[in-house]
Simulated scan of single mutants.
Amino acid sequence: MSDFVVIGGGVIGLMTTLQLADAGYSVSVVERGHCGREASWAGGGIVSPLYPWRYSAPVSRLSTWSEGAYPELALRLLEETGVDPEYRQKGLLYLRVEDEDKALKWAREVGKPLSRVGSDMIYTKEPGACSGIEEALWMPTLGSIRNPRLMRSLRTRLDAMPRVTFHENCEVRGIVAKGQGATLETSLGALSADQVVICSGAWSSQLLEMLDLRLPVRPVKGQMLLFKARPGMVNRVVLMDGRYVIPRADGRVLAGSTLEEAGFDKTTDAAARESLWRSATAIIPALADCEVEHHWAGLRPGSPDGVPFIGQVPGMPGIYVNAGHYRNGLVLAPASTRLLVDEMLGRSPVIDPAPYRLEGRLGQA
């Protein structure tokens, strides 16, 4: 029997497990498929909400803490595993922003470097950007991470930790709360722990239903494209009209993403592919000459206001939730997992946990 059972092998689950294992606890990770192959793999890896000034203060606080944690985490994982998560801090160019004044006011209030720049700066930073842009916003501190490699490095590190056990292709079929913690009925047998963490992304609401509770988290599909571009064609994240391109170290360029209410359907379609292609080539015209190497979809864990649910399930000691990060699961993962681990281990929280608690935010199933 492990000290903790973590249900969900995405970025939230694996970062939670790493922190618990670092603290000396044994952890069993239960994953319905393969770890790191759902939303954590499918996203783009921008380490910031797309338009951060449009988010509420609770999301901004998690984001700010996480942005500061990623460089150290990426370096640690590279040194300990040899797998480079490819954290790159090359900044972001915002083209055609309608609410520039609001963005600049937000930046002054939170102390974030963000400035209005002219065409000389735009094309010095990104020579391949679409022509005719006279003004943009520039955020020099923004970073990105190659999320599939982040997931691989986390898994590699955890595999080397003797107190961590993985149960993949393991479906949770029932959760029975006890005085402290719960017993899980799974396709591989029963698992019990005094501390259980539910962090299964878009599937978390299904798990809470087993406890007769309604967690307002739903799947929101996002489709992405990957262009096989040459190194240097795109140098940093560029965002325009709600769509973005993200360069990787080997030259490949991601383009995303759609927002679709389609339930748990992860199929891709030609209309979305065409829309993404047009958006990407409008931002960087030279991408029109590059092969589209891959087209995929993932399911974000949508929540009513984008503020995740982090904390103990009311009235159920030892059962915790960390879910509902919507478009910002990878962005907020370091802070949201640290916040929950602080609560579970009785440590002082890194930020105020009140906005994320589950009290008053759940319904009856």
Results as ranks from 00 to 15, higher is better:
residue 257 S to C: 09
residue 363 G to H: 14
residue 114 L to T: 05
residue 59 V to Q: 02
residue 134 E to R: 02
residue 316 M to R: 08
residue 108 R to G: 05
residue 107 A to Y: 11
residue 232 G to R: 11
residue 209 E to Q: 09
residue 217 V to I: 12
residue 345 L to T: 02
residue 54 R to T: 13
residue 351 I to R: 09
residue 342 D to R: 02
residue 197 V to P: 00
residue 127 P to G: 07
residue 264 F to V: 10
residue 253 V to T: 14
residue 153 S to R: 08
residue 365 A to N: 09
residue 9 G to Q: 08
residue 156 T to A: 03
residue 60 S to F: 12
residue 39 A to M: 03
residue 358 L to T: 00
residue 102 K to H: 01
residue 198 I to C: 08
residue 99 D to W: 09
residue 188 L to T: 15
residue 330 L to E: 06
residue 279 S to K: 03
residue 312 Q to C: 15
residue 37 R to E: 13
residue 284 I to P: 07
residue 107 A to I: 01
residue 196 V to A: 04
residue 333 A to L: 02
residue 161 M to L: 11
residue 35 C to F: 08
residue 190 A to W: 15
residue 24 G to K: 01
residue 364 Q to A: 11
residue 165 T to L: 11
residue 13 G to H: 00
residue 351 I to F: 04
residue 200 S to G: 13
residue 284 I to S: 09
residue 41 W to K: 05
residue 195 Q to H: 10
residue 102 K to T: 12
residue 348 S to V: 07
residue 44 G to L: 15
residue 62 L to A: 08
residue 199 C to H: 00
residue 150 L to C: 04
residue 324 G to L: 12
residue 346 G to M: 08
residue 108 R to L: 15
residue 177 A to P: 03
residue 248 R to Y: 14
residue 61 R to L: 03
residue 45 G to V: 10
residue 240 M to R: 10
residue 47 V to S: 01
residue 145 I to S: 04
residue 345 L to C: 07
residue 79 E to M: 09
residue 11 V to Y: 00
residue 208 L to C: 14
residue 245 V to P: 02
residue 312 Q to K: 15
residue 115 S to P: 05
residue 158 L to F: 07
residue 178 K to E: 07
residue 342 D to F: 05
residue 265 D to W: 09
residue 346 G to N: 09
residue 232 G to P: 14
residue 268 T to H: 05
residue 281 T to S: 15
residue 211 L to V: 12
residue 64 T to P: 11
residue 236 R to C: 09
residue 54 R to W: 15
residue 273 R to C: 06
residue 285 P to A: 07
residue 185 E to V: 09
residue 34 H to P: 08
residue 205 S to C: 02
residue 276 L to S: 02
residue 58 P to M: 07
